[in-house]
Design a protein around this nucleic acid. Sequence first.
DNA 1: TAGCCCGGCGTTTTT
DNA 2: CGCCGGGCTA
Length: 741
Amino acid sequence: MKEFLTKNLNSSQIEAVRCIEGPLIIFAGAGTGKTKVITHRIAYLLSLGISPWSILAVTFTNKAASEMKKKVANLISQTYKNVWISTFHSFCAHFLRVEASKINLDPDFLIYDFMDQKNTVKDCMKELNIDEKKIKASTIVNKISRAKDDLKIPSDITSEVKRSDYFLESTTSKIYELYQKKLKKASALDFGDLIMQTVVALQRLPATLEQYQEKSKYIMVDEYQDTNHAQYILIKLLAKKHCNICVVGDDDQSVYSWRGADINNILNFKKDYRNAKSVRLEQNYRSTPKILSTAYKVVKHNNARIDKQLWTKNPDDGSVIVIKAINENDEATKIANLILLNAYKYKLSSFAVFYRTNAQSRTFEDAFRRVGIPYSLVGTLKFYDRAEIKDIIAYLKLIHNPNDNVSFKRIINIPRRGIGKTSIKILEKFALLKNISLWEAIPLASQVGLTKGTQKALNSFMQLIETFSKLKKDSSAKIISKKVVTHSGYLKELETENTLESRTKIENIQELISAITDFENRSPDKSLAGYLTQIALTSDTDSLDESKDKVTLMTLHLAKGLEFEYVFICGLEEGLFPIWESVPNNEELEEERRLMYVGMTRAKKNLYLCWATERTVYGKIKWNVPSRFIAEAGFRCDLTKPEQSPNFKNPNKKYFRAEVVYKGKDTHNYNNDYEIKNKQLLSPINNINKYKIGTMVLHPTFGRGKIIEQSGTEENLKLVVLFENGQWKKLLAKVANLRFI
DNA sequence: TAGCCCGGCGTTTTT
DNA sequence: CGCCGGGCTA
């Protein structure tokens, strides 16, 4: 093995890299160098002279795929370009476009996102006279998506249900059937179709299958614990001939079962592939021993897992601390203060706040704004979800395929053309009757008794779109989109509005056009269809910009794969995390626990577990009990009496009881224990370690306070004390003249 | 047709 | 408490 491939790898990593023949499963715990192993493995294959054309690496996210490409390129400069590294969805989209003719598919199909799906389902429900108040459209979308994840067609759904669910299941099945017809008519595929259709095609076309099996003589699958059944079958088909399949994953980090991921895929790998070898990566390079052992204590409570325990050579500094807050504002204020306090040591981008639900982000935004901490909120408002962007995209989609009813309805009256809901309703009814698209119904509008004015408006809309369509042949996506913005009157309407909001919208549209320009400069396929595919399969572009020095706010789900020096996991209360719905169901509870594990293992040095005794939910105050995960992590919480902080009137500045603190022993022993300090807070301090974190002190000028941080030793022992007035001070212990109280 | 008001609802969301 | 969507009125 070439030397450049082995240096910086540990022995298990090397073992995983070198095992290239036959099935291999790599259990790669958090922070164990998983990506490194995959990229080195690819480089190793290439260094052996294996053709890049026969290597396929599949990931879930675009980010992971592009990172992987970049890292392989760094290892092997020349040949990497021909290695097929892509996401499941783009692999399938590519496959389906190339092989479309063999399976009676329009090669220029659109890709529907969640909103498109939901709108289509709504149409179906109207048509089938199903009351949207009884069953939500989004429930049906989820059910249809899950069915596709399981490779089920509409008739499969009803055949295997209990009688109690029969109504819901049979309506789902009916809607699913109609939904597929509508998608077909619009030449659209949803995300689930991309995988399912690919599987179906490969099963039906043995010659094609064989061809792709050659292309995937060596397969690698990243985040295997997140594969759903369809993806599992897809991989199985591709790997069947050569069986050089290498899957990488961590069952402890499986948090997407609600989206169809099946943890059994990874747990049963050895049953599926009898002669499979397995390698465990257990040396962690990210976190401190404290963090790892705490996280392990939590995840150990799960039954459906393969036991593995991470260890590290990292020094045992930093801390794991539980913070008890009075309410959600207090929680945010305390965290904001802790960040300010430590901001001199690290960049703001080294701090992250994780929460279970998006609704929790607001308090943090308020608190951070108040004290002037720059933050970036990840995941909520996606660029491509903004109304103005979706409008312009809808124009592009309609230009690409005028039969796309979803896009048609979105923009028919944007900007206002005097075509209202009732006109559309009439047109829709008519189109349904004639089994044609809304677009095709326009020339026949005179037959349905629409007014002259409406007819005229419809016709000029049609003309507008047709003018754009003519540009398709010899104009780029950029030119078309520019013309759409101006000629449709969209820009003009925003300009006349001239509000702060409308100006932001104009900026966003300009940003969109520059994104399209960017796409054209980069991508080999400069067509409109190419661009539409790209955006359908790409999520947020700008959300996590690591170059900006800001604190990160995000949900725990989005945290997977990232790492930060300081991690704050918030809202650790029964009912919120673990979220109430999951508690009665053991499998779901275990998934919550894995989510906790994911969150904890993001931390490199300092981990804070936060909970509030009181929290306002939907305008009502709720009293909480600390999350079981806090106890499982080895901390004891006093549940009986919620603390009332003395001497405080302003609730936002009530002081802090870092009730339970990790007692750091200077040892790398992985299994060392935690000492509960809860009861010692107000008791006499022994001389040896008298400035313990959590100790109450009295300062001659600042008054009562509590030690919440320490650094340095002996003569240089520095303390951070939080005083009752809400101020934080950094003090040199030797001269601070503190008295214990 | 468009704007307003009222009622219901309120996990997580790689593609 | 706040948002979104449906229905009703000007």
